Structure formats: structure tokens, C-alpha cells
Simulated assay, not measured.
Amino acid sequence: MTTLDILLHRYNGKITLNVSDIAQILGYCENHCRNLISQDKFPIQTFLMGSRRVARVDAVAAYIDNVSASPKRRGPKTKAQKIAEAKAEVRHA
């Protein structure tokens, strides 16, 4: 079952999700999401449907899949990362 299938099942087949639903899915406060949207910093494209701000469910699923596929590590590179980079440079030289 894909992320899209799970979201469609959980939200009864709705193809758009409102900001409240998106905030709940991402684990953010709704006001934080609205602030990010107004600053054009929200990672998921939203649009107005009437007077409501919504996003397509497939865009939300794609964002979740993308974030879970590439965890970001903060801080300096580990010794293993440095060694792997050095080996890659030697191979390409």
C-alpha cells in the first residue's frame, strides 16, 4: 500500500486536503502551516478552492515519500562519509 493509498483511505477518497488535515498529517500546528504558506515557504503547493486553502492529496503523499526517502543529517560529515568521498574521488581520478 502506498502513501497515496493510505491517505485516500484515511480521508475517504478526498482528492484535496485542507490545511487542518495537512497539519495533522505532518505533525505541525495549523497556524505554523498557515504562516509558512503566507511566507511562500510551505513545502507543499496549495491553492484556494473557494475561500479554503487546500492541497492535492497526491502532492502531500509525494512530499511524505520524498522526506522519508532522504533523511537529512545535521552537523559535520562523519568519518565514514569522508572515507567514502575520498574513495569516490580516487576512482574518478
Rank of each mutant, 00 (worst) to 15 (best):
R34V: 03
S51M: 00
K79V: 11
D21K: 03
R52H: 11
C29A: 13
E85H: 08
I44A: 08
N66I: 00
R53N: 12
A55M: 09
S70L: 06
L8T: 04
V57W: 02
Q81D: 14
N31Q: 15
N18Y: 07
G27S: 07
V54H: 07
G13M: 02
G75I: 08
K82Y: 03
A80G: 01
V90T: 11
I64C: 06
R56G: 03
T78R: 11
I25E: 15
M49K: 12
Q39R: 14
K82F: 02
I83C: 02
G13I: 03
K87W: 04
V54Q: 06
I25D: 12
R52P: 00
D40Y: 01
V90E: 12
V67Q: 10
A23V: 10
V60A: 05
I83R: 12
A84F: 02
H92D: 12
N31I: 09
E30M: 09
P43S: 10
T78G: 12
S20G: 15
R34H: 11
L26Y: 03
A80C: 00
V57N: 03
D5M: 05
S38C: 07
S38P: 00
H9R: 08
I83K: 11
K41D: 07
A59T: 02
H92C: 06
V90C: 06
H9T: 10
K77G: 06
R34E: 14
I6L: 08
D40A: 06
E89F: 14
S70Y: 08
D40G: 00
I25T: 09
A55V: 09
D5Y: 04
D21C: 12
L8K: 13
D21N: 15
I15T: 10
R52N: 13
A86W: 05
K77W: 08
A84W: 01
D58I: 04
D5L: 04
D65Y: 01
Y28Q: 14
M49V: 05
D65I: 03
L17K: 04
